[in-house]
Design a protein around this nucleic acid. Sequence first.
DNA 1: CAGTGGATGCTCT
DNA 2: GAGCATCCACTGT
Length: 192
Amino acid sequence: MISSDRALHRDFFDRSVHAVAPDLIGATLTFNGVGGRIVEVEAYHHTDPAAHSYRGRTARNAVMFGPPGHAYVYRSYGIHWCVNFVCEAEGSASAVLIRAIEPLEGIDTMRSRRGLDDIRLLCSGPGRVCQALGITGHHDGLTLDRPPFRLMPRAEMPDVVAGPRIGITKAADLPWRYGLAGSRFLSKPFRK
DNA sequence: CAGTGGATGCTCT
DNA sequence: GAGCATCCACTGT
């Protein structure tokens, strides 16, 4: 039932967050036609002390406790927005943070929103991704299988690498960051 | 390049 | 009142 011009089915997200996260590497994400290829993500499981859902449901993380295949958007450090894809069965409260994208569509729009030209700096970081694509807290809870989101499966199997997550203090040693090997668009290189 | 510190606002204790 | 799932500017090699 999977064809290359068809959006990712909701069943794709109804699996372990640790299966979904590496499978998102190479998929194409656009928001109102602006986006590109996902090259870096991080998995956050509800049993993980670093996850927003670890201490239970609150107003902020409510979407994480809802059905899979929806966007959880939160404000980071008072300034930035970050977007996650909710995974696993409803109530599981696990999600994948989108950390970096290789810009492919709407690059001029991204440059304008980001206020800089260097294509390598447009979407190489979770806050940068949301600024470049125009994702804000207004979009918290939107489903991923309809506009403004569009999420297409990857055409070929990429070389996926894993390593520790970035910018967290709790459970910082868990290797739940996934990336496209050798990509120039990562927020940080993966250690060998 | 690596390291440091400020901006900034919301959530949860 | 503390602590952020970050980014940028600035410093010093």
